[in-house]
Design a protein around this nucleic acid. Sequence first.
DNA 1: GTCTATAGATTGATAGAC
DNA 2: GTCTATCAATCTATAGAC
Lengths: 183, 183
Amino acid sequence: MVRGEGVPTRERIRSAASTLFRERGYARSSVRDIAALAEADAALVIRHFGSKELLFLETMQPSLDDEPLLAVPLEQLGRRFVEVVLADADEFSDVYLALVRGSGEPSIAGRLRTVHEETFVRPLLARLPGQGGELRARLAAALIGGLLYSLWVVGDEYLLAADRHEVVERYGSLLQDILTPAA
Amino acid sequence: MVRGEGVPTRERIRSAASTLFRERGYARSSVRDIAALAEADAALVIRHFGSKELLFLETMQPSLDDEPLLAVPLEQLGRRFVEVVLADADEFSDVYLALVRGSGEPSIAGRLRTVHEETFVRPLLARLPGQGGELRARLAAALIGGLLYSLWVVGDEYLLAADRHEVVERYGSLLQDILTPAA
DNA sequence: GTCTATAGATTGATAGAC
DNA sequence: GTCTATCAATCTATAGAC
């Protein structure tokens, strides 16, 4: 690592924005703060990305690796989904939290809706064809959201400290119940 | 209704703050906006309530009428809880949404935690004594939160338009499953 | 209790030299 | 591409007259 070398300003700004938005959220991160962290000029932030809002939308794009989800038999999808969500939590939770907390801003609310749709609803819906599938998929997505909400938005310390395998087992089996009802 | 009569300024400010915080959230509601809606002076807002933050905390105190929850047999608590949450949604959802969206602010995050604890976890925990009760109560609270999250934060239009009785039946029976497991 | 006036800081964004 | 300088608006909060 040589000082003055390498990373283009635009990338340094992107990286700094990603860090700050995840740590403090949209409202509490100023363009000046981002510029300072990137060791760049505040004017360049706007110059490169148009506005603070566009910069937020460009950097806050959470994605789950849902490849493993599609590969597993339907009877195991419940536990598997919870497992994947918790496993990717480090990459996923901060960004997701920023979207939830920023969702007072209409454009951010739209992004949250899209992410919820694409990440939670769509993969489930694909596995639940036929009558009643959509309601079950959306209630299942609500259930997933509830776990993230409890862990990352509320910050339930008991759950955060709980044995992960037990949470996967318990909550995953609930999820399984709505995907493939016993009765 | 006679102009110039009646309602004290302090109450007009409180009412205006409640309206604006619920409609726009914490970050997007300014002291000036609140004063304007209350037809009062901006300085009086601070004078009466100390700060914008204290005004928010004083006005945003959601409460569920959990009387019906205590009266019902444990075997019916799942559906009943979902029923109550959805029935009180008009009073409850806006305030809860404001807390979630404002939870980037540490003091608001604390309030959200308290409300989650008192409103969701405590009533369930009271009904689930004995070993493993706390984990079940907290996972159940997560499940409840997930429904509110899907409906009010994400705004899942399919669920919002769905038959309420069916949602109560389906989601309530999931909740029941974690309160009183079949196996 | 209520108001005017304003402090004092911070905000997002732009113009224009280099 | 990068910078200085700054605009113009907004913000919370306070001081002090009435």
